[in-house]
Nucleic acid binder design. Sequence first.
DNA 1: AAATATTTTTATACAAACCTAAATATTATT
DNA 2: AATAATATTTAGGTTTGTATAAAAATATTT
Lengths: 217, 217
Amino acid sequence: MATTTEENYLKAIYHLNGDRDGKSLRTNELADYLVIAPSTVSNMLVKLSEKGLIEYQKYGRITLSHSGEEIALSVLRKHRLWETFLYEKLGFTWDEIHDVAEELEHINSQKLIDKLDELLGYPEYDPHGDPIPKANGQSRETYKKTLSMAELGKPYQIVAVKNTSVEFLQYASEIGIELEAKISVNSRLDFDGSMEIEIGGTARTVSQKVAENVYVG
Amino acid sequence: MATTTEENYLKAIYHLNGDRDGKSLRTNELADYLVIAPSTVSNMLVKLSEKGLIEYQKYGRITLSHSGEEIALSVLRKHRLWETFLYEKLGFTWDEIHDVAEELEHINSQKLIDKLDELLGYPEYDPHGDPIPKANGQSRETYKKTLSMAELGKPYQIVAVKNTSVEFLQYASEIGIELEAKISVNSRLDFDGSMEIEIGGTARTVSQKVAENVYVG
DNA sequence: AAATATTTTTATACAAACCTAAATATTATT
DNA sequence: AATAATATTTAGGTTTGTATAAAAATATTT
Ligand SMILES: [Mn+2]
Ligand SMILES: [Mn+2]
Ligand SMILES: [Mn+2]
Ligand SMILES: [Mn+2]
């Protein structure tokens, strides 16, 4: 069995190798993401590699092995099912669920997760719009079009958010950014990438950074 | 904050000091209960004592401090609420819930436990008949009368079970021992304390050990 | 009350997960 | 291609929670 720490590494590697354009994942990037020292990561990479959970050799690129990816997907499945539970059944808001799910995802019980899935009615997406991997490890691909890439004047719907920090999600809620909300871009300012949008009938200005964290479809 | 291990120690001390008749709790008994070496316990006792969570000095008796008891009760509350959730909402059987709750009880989120309590309708007892401590730390006293102490011929109801091992609970279910079941003792054999009982209309023989693990009222 | 047995503590060690600082390898710049 | 900058690993330490074996304290038996 993988420890909680190992599971978090595998999930991080899966995540960081997900939306990248070819660039190979390296020690420092993982260390930054996990907010720990590069030397700690370096040691752990040797251990994960010895356990057959990642493909890796000194100074090289970091990728998951087949069994490593299986674990990463199962932890991600648990994470997103718990988030859905907290949101749907316990009335948590979407900015409160991530941190708690970060702990719950490490509870070991196949029956628990199967029954939770059943209780929730086999949801396909979590409250941030992210796809929930299936029990067999199948997972839908992630979204590609962000609000910052949207065409001017065209009507869109919000399908997911990228960032799950409390700060972003609370701000997003305040300005009406929520799943399935109708949204369109009126204009884009070349200088800083900020844009005038219309959301729920109200006109707003959002920064490029915000626009890059909203997926539309 | 207490670590998961510390929480488990405090809960164990609370439990072992609960149904005892004056005998003072000592290192070896704790070590046996937790299935770890006495030296490990000895070291941990010094740490817990330094943290002000227990009253203890070398070679002496072990009791919880006020703040130690607060933590023990809050962990016990979480444990029993989770057990109730698994049983009521996810269809687990009463022999499957303890081990999973043993992990879930260490998740840190006040909101999570408050909302769980609400979802369950503020239950008073867990699926083993044990009282669930209130949020303010109040807890009903534990039961005193076991089946082995019952009067012959008198009608009783099962109110709780003492042992939560899979082996005991599965056997108990098989012979009709479940909460609220009507039960009476026909005869008791002095030789080994075994007894003839009638439960749900069926006559059975149970050992003294089984009878000591069933609470009636 | 001595001797013996038992319990508890102390000394020492190990694994996991982290750290800082130093050494080394890789990459970028001149 | 040599030098400088950056990334990564290695060396050496810390903390938490565990273990075994030896020492010391307490309890029991003779
Ligand atoms: Mn996690
Ligand atoms: Mn999510
Ligand atoms: Mn526990
Ligand atoms: Mn219980």
